[in-house]
Simulated assay, not measured.
Amino acid sequence: MEATHYLIGIDGGGTGTRVVLADARGVELAQAAGGPSGLGLGVARAWQSIEAACAQAFASAGLRLDWAHCALGCGLAGVNNRDWLAGFIAQAPLLAALDVQSDAYTTLLGAHGGEAGVIVAVGTGSIAAVLQRDGSWGIAGGYGFPSGDEASGAWLGLRAVVHAQQALDGRTPPDAFSAALLAQMNVADRDGLVVWLCEANQTAYAGLAPVVLAHRGHPVAAALLAQAGADIAKLVDALDPSAALPVALCGGLAAPLAEYVPASHRSRLRPPQTDSAHGALELARRASAGSLRESGTAA
């Protein structure tokens, strides 16, 4: 059993990866960011992004990455697919310790400081989670793109692109919103859009979400954002029907979507204490402590 010299927290989604590096005592040394590491984009790609971001964090701290002395805590999108999770663990390098959980769980740990509460994470994808006062936890949503992930960036983009399609073939008048969507896709005509649609993945659709937000006054965009707010409320109600727990809206779309959450739920929103990467750092700390106990080197 290798000794743990460093703790690493990983927050991996469909758009990017965030890394927090700390020493064995938990003192933060550096942060870094990299490409997507959500498992839906492939296990090999996930590890490539994680390794590149970790190497960047170590370099920023003036250190060399040596996996054998690292305890890695990962909060990743896509671990609810057991085959993807098994593949990810199978391809892991030699580590001092490893714990892989849903990014919903690490977001939950970070947002409420390990205390009871609800989170709704809205970024490239979306998921909601609750930590009960007895320590149990559960999730709602998060079934993945394209059928699930309500209120996410990919969900918004997938629906917004319909407006561009209809503007291109005359079913609705072209306008500034449709033009901005087409410009974001670098598309000029119907054939180009068909090619884009055939190649687009979750990340590509999420790239259209800023266009929706920039045109929030447009009827189509306004309707999508209102539906996103209503869907966030439904996720909260599914996990906390008695409305007894605080709620943190997390992720890259948290701030712009907060105003669309119904007033009955908006009053319960609290700023997250820390983010998913720091929640994953706590996973790494626990994993490191567990590996020490297993090796018989802890009291």
Rank of each mutant, 00 (worst) to 15 (best):
M1F: 02
A3F: 04
T4E: 03
H5Y: 05
Y6W: 15
G12Q: 10
G12K: 03
G13H: 06
T15W: 07
G16W: 04
G16I: 09
T17E: 01
V20P: 07
V20L: 09
L21I: 04
A22C: 11
R25C: 11
G26V: 12
G26N: 13
L29W: 01
Q31N: 04
A32E: 02
G35W: 05
S37K: 04
L39R: 08
G40Y: 07
V43M: 11
Q48N: 12
I50L: 07
E51A: 05
A52P: 01
A52H: 15
A53I: 10
A55G: 15
A55K: 08
A61Y: 00
L63Y: 00
W67N: 06
A68K: 13
A68V: 14
H69M: 01
G73K: 07
G75I: 02
V79E: 11
N81E: 14
R82P: 01
W84F: 09
W84E: 02
L85Y: 05
A86W: 04
A86T: 13
G87T: 09
P93W: 12
A97W: 03
Q101H: 13
A104K: 06
T107P: 00
G110E: 09
G113D: 04
G114E: 03
G114H: 08
A116W: 03
A116F: 08
G117E: 05
V120Y: 01
G123D: 06
T124I: 10
G125V: 09
V130A: 12
D134I: 11
D134C: 06
D134Y: 09
D134Q: 04
G135R: 12
G135M: 12
G135N: 11
S136H: 15
I139Y: 02
I139P: 00
A140F: 05
G142Y: 00
Y143E: 13
F145W: 11
P146Y: 12
S147G: 02
D149F: 01
E150R: 10
S152W: 08
S152V: 07
L156E: 08
H163E: 08
Q166N: 08
A167N: 05
L168R: 01
D169C: 04
R171S: 11
P174A: 15
D175S: 10
A176S: 15
F177Q: 07
A180C: 12
A183T: 13
A183N: 10
A183Y: 03
V187N: 05
V187C: 14
A188W: 01
A188F: 00
D189V: 08
D189T: 11
R190G: 00
D191W: 02
V194N: 10
C198N: 13
N201I: 06
N201T: 13
T203C: 07
A204V: 09
V211G: 02
V211S: 03
V212I: 03
H215P: 06
V220L: 02
A222H: 13
A228L: 11
I232C: 02
A238M: 06
D240M: 12
D240W: 08
P241L: 05
S242Y: 10
A243V: 14
A244G: 06
L245S: 11
G251V: 05
G251M: 07
G252E: 10
L253H: 08
A258K: 13
V261L: 14
P262S: 14
A263K: 12
S264L: 09
S267W: 04
S267C: 15
L269H: 07
R270H: 12
R270K: 14
P272C: 12
A277H: 00
E282M: 10
A284F: 10
A284Y: 08
S291Q: 15
R293A: 13
G296R: 11
A298N: 07
